[in-house]
Write a protein that binds this DNA or RNA. Structure first.
Length: 104
DNA sequence: GGGGTGACCCAGT
DNA sequence: TACTGGGCCACCC
């Protein structure tokens, strides 16, 4: 069967992240679900793992965990960027209820 | 071929 | 709000 190469999957993930408009955010699970419908393979852990390796070229700060928490190690920076883009926040966490976005 | 690992997710305490 | 345990699934060695 023609499973997508890891590099292709990475490209898809990065493409979706780049498509996230300012002031919006997506959770790893959401991206995984979107890619699942597109490439058949997804898992929130996969997306996170990919971001850890190849996320340096995309606005990873717009990607947060499903509970609205920002990535460890860069919270301060991510938070500042999110605030600068008017992303809905709540006590240091992203309010996904308002920031949730979907690539359509 | 087998085992360990993880930018996660959900529910319970 | 924070912490714990269990589950998930592909990646890397």
């Amino acid at each position: 069967m023609a499973r997508v190469d890891p590099e292709e999957y990475v490209e898809e993930v990065l493409a979706v992240v780049e498509r996230i408009p300012p002031g919006r955010a997506m959770s790893y699970g959401a991206i995984a679900d979107y890619l699942s419908d597109r490439s058949g393979r997804s898992s929130a852990r996969l997306v996170g793992s990919i971001m850890a390796k190849h996320g340096g070229s995309v606005p990873w700060h717009r990607v947060v965990a499903a509970n609205g928490r920002v990535v460890p190690g860069h919270q301060g920076e991510a938070l500042a960027r999110l605030v600068g883009e008017a992303t809905p926040m709540k006590n240091g966490r992203v309010d996904l209820s308002r920031a949730a976005w979907w690539p359509e």
